[in-house]
């Protein structure tokens, strides 16, 4: 029996890379995104390359009321769920406009956390499953340049941590991924240091290995664990004066 992975936010570059990585291992794919038609070409590509089943599903991370119906409609209930939904927004806009900030908070925290929480319940009832959330180093400490997004990711990281803690004695596993800089649509045009910037394929490989090796929290490039340890260790009086 082949296994199935559900990918939420399947149009992102990291999600696409993960879909290929899991398909290579023989996983069938449930690819969910707001516009299901937009991922049909990817689904067909994955079927052709890997000979797996790939279905495109409509999923809106802001429509929390629709989650129960979406999950009930999954056939089969997947073995693994990976949430790659992310929306950076514009920090200045988020500062000024509560509606814009709400979309950032809900897209990065509320929606992903609730969806994964509900799936974790189903996994627990079944007695197996892996929950993987792509959070962000931006959630490790709030910074002036993106703290609305960062706060949402911090919430998501805390949620995953708590979920893992609660399920630790059972069969369901929870993995938190903090990729650091990744060369994607979201970061295109930003002047990122290439040594700190992972390619989407690297992220996918790291996620697969994390699942395979039973890790809890991963940074993709190791240097990020060090960088974030330093950033977290700075005393607040010093940190508040930095421009990171």
């Amino acid at each position: 029996m082949s296994k199935t992975i559900l990918i939420l936010g399947a149009t992102s570059d990291m999600a696409r890379a993960c879909a290929h990585r899991y398909a290579r291992e023989g996983y069938d794919l449930q690819l969910a995104a707001r516009d299901a038609a937009a991922i049909e070409a990817d689904a067909q590509d994955l079927r052709l390359r890997h000979g797996v089943t790939a279905t495109a599903l409509a999923f809106d991370v802001l429509d929390t009321d629709g989650f129960a119906g979406f999950i009930a409609g999954l056939a089969p209930l997947p073995d693994v769920v990976l949430c790659a939904v992310g929306f950076m927004g514009d920090q200045t806009e988020s500062q000024r406009n509560p509606q814009a900030a709400t979309v950032v908070l809900r897209s990065n925290f509320e929606g992903p956390a609730l969806a994964l929480g509900m799936l974790a319940e189903r996994f627990e009832a079944r007695g197996s499953g892996t929950v993987i959330g792509i959070s962000s180093v931006a959630g490790d400490r709030g910074r002036a340049s993106n703290y609305v997004y960062g706060a949402a990711k911090a919430g998501f990281t805390a949620f995953l941590s708590g979920l893992r803690n609660r399920l630790a004695r059972g069969p369901v596993r929870v993995i938190t991924v903090k990729p650091g800089f990744v060369a994607t649509k979201m970061t295109e045009g930003l002047p990122l240091n290439p040594r700190l910037t992972a390619q989407p394929d690297e992220v996918a490989e790291a996620i697969w290995r994390a699942q395979d090796k039973g890790r809890d929290v991963i940074y993709v490039r190791r240097v990020w664990r060090l960088i974030m340890a330093i950033i977290r260790a700075l005393p607040e009086w010093q940190f508040k004066k930095t421009t990171l």
């Binding site: 070409a41 067909q44 590509d45 052709l48 390359r49």
Partner: peptide
């Protein structure tokens, strides 16, 4: 101006 085709990389039919 070079335009990379690296994102236009899907297999369509066989």
């Amino acid at each position: 101006h070079a335009i990379s085709t690296r994102h236009l990389n899907r297999m369509i039919a066989f």
